[in-house]
Amino acid sequence: MFPFVLEKPQSTEDAIAAAASGARYIAGGTTLVDLMREEVEGPERLVDINKLPLGGIRVEGEDLVIGALARMAEVAADPNVQRLQPLIAESLIEGASPQLRNMASMGGNLLQRVRCPYFRMLDAGCNKRTPGSGCAAIEGLNAGHAILGTSDHCVATHPSDVAVALVALYATMRVRGSKGERSFPVEELFRLPGDTPHLEHTLLPGELIMEIRVAGGPHSHRARYLKVRDRASYEFALVSAAVALSIEGGVIRQARLAVGGVGTRPWRLRNCEAALAGKRPERQAFEEAAQLATQGARPLHHNQFKVELLPRTIVRALEMAGEVA
């Protein structure tokens, strides 16, 4: 690990000022410390934001508001989260481990970095880590990689579970930088790799994630997260699906659907959503809609199975959501 200087600002303003001048935020550290130890990351200055007032979970009208520093475990166990947005709680406890969830913050979770093995190998070409050095995964072992949103420069999936749920719930986030605050959909946080895979998110330099806001609605309760993996726990998703259905009079009024493990960012499936609207919540409709999910998929040598697994995962998740009483 490279040496660094740790700063402990007392105010959000000081933290933002430090970050604007090149320092790096650190919250739970479960991504950053890990990658610093591998020397994939080498910030010279760290800004410890844990003392800032960015924690907590509150309800504002129909909205659930989650502070950026709220821990995964805390959010998953929160009665308001469980009551208003059970999908968030379910996606959280399917991720990482109890210990990591006690440490990891929601803001850090969204900004966690890819689990592509070559990304953490300093002796392999990786455009994300070292722009212009090539991508060892494209011709390498890429069973875990993406089939959607890939480019010739990077094919790594975004690993977060809860981000998939938040995208499916059309959550928004509020960020603050030296030039002020702005809010935008969580989905817009993530960039496609294109030919600049080292640029992963749309935050401006120094911008700090303040909170995440999720609006409630008729879909919030018929919502499920299905994570498919070879091991029952403590493994990233091969494929995952977050679905939320609002059903009226036996017909799907609105379907919300995002998937993980297959895209270079948490992947919302608008075409599937559209195909489900107005249909009866039945297996055949689910299957027809799910077939659209792999439109434009570009499987790699070792991850062709995801083209098969993705629609199956969606169908099953839709069934699970449909079964919610």
Binding site: G132, G134, C135, E139, N142, H301, H302
Partner: peptide
């Protein structure tokens, strides 16, 4: 996930072309 190297492409460089 399955990765059976024996079925993989003929081995190419692990570095980018420039690096190779």
């Amino acid at each position: 996930m399955t990765e059976n190297p024996s079925e993989s492409h003929p081995p190419g460089p692990i570095m980018s072309r420039r690096e190779t």
